[in-house]
Design a binder for these strands. Structure first.
Length: 111
DNA sequence: TCTTTGACGTACA
DNA sequence: GTGTACGCCAAAG
């Protein structure tokens, strides 16, 4: 991967997140050396107009495991529904067993 | 061109 | 646990 904008890299990593697992803005930002987790958030904000198709943005949550970006989906509950459909339990807008379900992009390299 | 605004994170009181 | 402050950097107006 090269010559792509930072947000395309974010999409790439986001699509690599295994179903039933979740990652964080900070982990992705660190892995891509973006310098700021906000860049990831901004990229996902634009994910709806991505030409790469569906971006599983519901698998990206903040450091606490909160569904901070649910308001940007079609409906505020759509994000949670997608996660639960993948087997991720969500309680009070937070990922249950977040520590266990957490996935770091670094695992792509260990592959 | 400048100012404001974020799907964030860390530090500190 | 809660609230405030600041750093981060790109996009929008």
């Amino acid at each position: 991967m090269s010559g792509q904008s930072y947000f395309e890299l974010v999409y790439y990593v986001t699509q690599k997140i295994p179903s039933g697992r979740v990652s964080t803005y900070g982990a992705i930002a660190d892995y891509l050396s973006l310098g700021s987790a906000r860049m990831v958030g901004w990229a996902l904000t634009q994910s709806h107009r991505s030409s790469m198709g569906d971006i599983p943005a519901q698998r990206v949550v903040n450091r606490k495991g909160e569904l901070s970006g649910r308001m940007h989906f079609k409906t505020p509950t759509h994000m949670q529904e997608l996660l639960e459909a993948e087997g991720v339990r969500v309680v009070k807008d937070r990922v249950a067993d977040f520590d266990k379900l957490f996935w770091h992009p670094q695992e792509l390299d260990e592959d």
